[in-house]
Each structure stands twice: as C-alpha cells, then as structure tokens.
C-alpha cells in the first residue's frame, strides 16, 4: 500500500525531528527541527484529505509561529547552549516518567478501532468549500470571537514588548 508507506515515512520523520528538538544543543537547531516536524504533520493532514487544515497549518505554524521563534532566538542572541542543564538523575527520572506515560497511553489505546464511516482518501469534508460553509454557518460566533481574542493578544504583546515600565 502506497499511502501506508507515506504514512510511515511522515511519522518517522516527525518523530525523529521531534526527538532532535529535545536533543539539539543549540536552540536554533531545535527551532529548525520543529519546523520540519510541522511540515511532516502538514503532510499527514494532506494524507487525511484535510487540505484546508494542511494549508492553514503551514501558514500559521511554519510561516508565523516558527518565524516568531526564530526572531526571538536571533534578536535576543539566545543561541547558546544551556548554561546549567539539569543534573543527570533528573533527566533519567524525566525520561522514565515520559516513557511510562507513553506505555500507559499506548496500553489504553491498543486494540482500539472505530467503524470507519467513509473512505478517508475520498472524503470531502476537509475541502475549503465544505469547511467554509460549516464555519460561517454553524460556528460564526466563535469565529468572530476569535478575532477579538487575536486583538487582545496583539494589544497584550505590544504592551508587554514596550521598553519602558508600565
């Protein structure tokens, strides 16, 4: 199955770059690996035939959020290794805790399956036309409220970023 190979390729790419986000020494490498993870996830959206989400994901995450991260790293000159990384025993404990969480969650989800209602590769709900219709008909109020949220976030970011103390 061709789509299965694409799925495994994208999954391994995403997991590898997500691990490299944590293992890179310099923050700028972490930012670039995170961008790679986001592109792999965008590929997953395309695989699910959620084209609107794929495009929005690339624009918002790879285009806006990662540029913000890059600007912060470069403008503040933060691109140096951690001065005092956590001691080794804390790292060991954290990795054991994270691995245990993963094992528990996988144990819960194992064998779970749903009755697939539609062919995931032929479904039409992820297209811009259908999602836009749903968004502007059923979810119009949350959509408008999110613009107020953005306005608030913008005002807050400008206020926090001002030089003089408030």
């Amino acid at each position: 199955m061709f789509t299965k190979y694409i799925f495994f390729f994208l999954s391994i790419l995403a997991l590898y770059s997500a691990l490299m986000v944590l293992m890179s020494k310099k923050p700028i490498h972490s930012v670039l690996y995170l961008t790679l993870t986001f592109f792999a996830i965008a590929g997953h959206y395309v695989l699910l035939n959620a084209q609107f989400l794929a495009v929005v994901h690339v624009i918002v995450y790879a285009g806006a959020i990662m540029v913000l991260f890059l600007f912060t790293v470069m403008l503040l000159n933060l691109n140096k290794e951690e001065v005092s990384p956590k001691p080794l025993w804390i790292k060991t404990v954290v990795i054991i805790a994270g691995g245990t969480l993963m094992i528990v969650l996988i144990g819960i989800f194992r064998g779970y399956d749903i009755a697939i209602k539609t062919d995931p590769f032929l479904t039409q709900i992820g297209l811009v036309k259908n999602l836009g219709r749903v968004l502007y008909k059923d979810y119009l109020l949350p959509f408008e409220l999110s613009s107020i949220l953005f306005l608030t976030a913008m005002v807050g970011a400008v206020l926090l970023g001002k030089k003089e103390q408030i």
Binding site: A50, K117, G126, N130, V134, Y139, S146
Partner: peptide, 22 residues
C-alpha cells in the same frame, strides 16, 4: 474527524490553531 466524516473536528482544530497562535 476525517474517519467519522464529521466536519466539527476540523473546525475545532482550526480554533485550536487560532488560540495557539495567540
């Protein structure tokens, strides 16, 4: 959302992206 053929999930993802950007 895709497997259950329900667009509400994808709308939710859109709103989560909005909140994450803010």
């Amino acid at each position: 959302s895709t497997y259950l053929n329900d667009p509400a999930g994808q709308i939710f993802v859109f709103f989560i992206m909005v909140v994450a950007a803010a």
